[in-house]
Simulated assay, not measured.
Amino acid sequence: MRDNHRFRMADGAEFVGHQGDSFEMRVSMPSDDQGFFGRQCPECSLVFRMDARQYEALPDDLILWCVYCGHHAEHSEFVTEHQRNRAVQAVSDFGRQLVSHELRKMFSRLPRGSRSGGLSFSYESQSFFPRPLPGIDEEQLVRIRTCPGCHINYAVFSEHRYCPGCGPLPATSVAFDALQADTARLDALEALPSDAKALLREQGVFARGWVDTVKSVVGVVEYLASSLFRTAVPHADSLLNGKGAIFQRLDPMADLIIDAGFSDLRTVLGPQAWQRLLETWAARHVFTHNDGIVDEKYLARVPGSSARIGQRLVPTEDMCRQALTDAKALCETLIDVLR
């Protein structure tokens, strides 16, 4: 009898064969309704999902990247907990049958009722019925992302910086994804039931989220502008020498880009949009360095403000949404100007 007929395997598991003491099994890992299946980083333990058909077409020696922390290793190391449990059960069922088979073979060589040293040995095998393999019940994808470099489709469940197939994502992808995430956060808070919103407002969750959004847009622009500038300007390091965190400061950043031979961001965007951005950057400064307390520097940058020195700046949802819109426009302008 052939080995693959000797062992009973659950649906989804298959005994392929063996050579010497090495046994080979195949255990299927079901995909979700969109054809995606999970991968789990062995370093940070977070799960992401990949298109199963694309994954099958990738090289056997594929080095996979964690989309969150950037850990990269041989792709077989990215097995999820659910997938591991499914494989372990299949191996366990196979192992029980293998032990039973070996015992039956060993006892078949002994005379029936054999005695040795006053002991009697016998063995009676029983029919084995494998248990159904556990399903894969992992977090489902919300939307599909496509890497602009290698075009692999994947899904994430947190902020990410890497493509699972080719590594670090372009700065443009990271920037626009971050702005979209901040917009989604505002939308999610607004969609909460009224009683939940009232409780969270009273506890300061909304105000804290708005402050975080203002801080975030400045960080997004700083990251994108720095990356684009260093790529577009061959002598970027010499121009940046001694200038500190210049990409956190709008007017010095605009002057730097002019000095490198590019257009004036202020002219391309227009004075009204630029002034709103200056006000957002000023708000970020007092939120970050002065707990939101208005000072002379803030009033100098926001001359139209009705706030007085010593008052606390209070963010609003409208302020945040306008900041996101303006930051997106600035990012698009940076791409056009520094291409």
Rank of each mutant, 00 (worst) to 15 (best):
T80V: 07
S127T: 04
W65F: 03
P134M: 03
M1Q: 00
R49L: 01
R39C: 01
A307S: 09
E332W: 03
D264R: 02
G20W: 01
L338A: 08
P148V: 12
K197R: 14
E138P: 01
G12A: 09
R266E: 11
T267H: 09
F229D: 03
N241T: 03
A184H: 10
G310T: 10
L98R: 09
I152A: 04
E139W: 02
A300G: 03
C147P: 08
F262E: 03
D3I: 10
P164A: 00
E332N: 15
F229A: 08
Q311A: 13
L189A: 01
A260R: 13
F287N: 04
A273W: 00
E74T: 13
G117Y: 05
R161D: 01
C166V: 05
R39N: 01
D195Y: 07
A184L: 10
E202K: 01
V286E: 11
E222N: 00
P271N: 06
I63G: 07
I257S: 02
V268Q: 13
L330E: 06
L110I: 08
F129M: 15
D3C: 13
D11W: 05
F121K: 00
R312F: 04
L265W: 01
E81D: 14
K243D: 11
R276Y: 09
E202A: 04
R115V: 15
R161A: 04
H5A: 15
S31M: 06
I335P: 05
A175T: 11
K328G: 15
L256V: 02
R86T: 06
I136Y: 00
L338G: 01
D187Q: 11
Q97L: 12
L141N: 14
Y123D: 12
A327R: 13
P132Y: 00
A196H: 14
P164E: 02
L119R: 12
L299E: 12
M25L: 15
W65D: 02
D212Q: 13
G219Y: 05
S263Y: 06
G219E: 09
A10Y: 04
R131Q: 14
S122C: 14
A307P: 00
L324I: 12
F128L: 02
L224H: 04
N241S: 13
R266V: 12
G242C: 03
T288F: 07
G113E: 03
S122Q: 15
L189T: 11
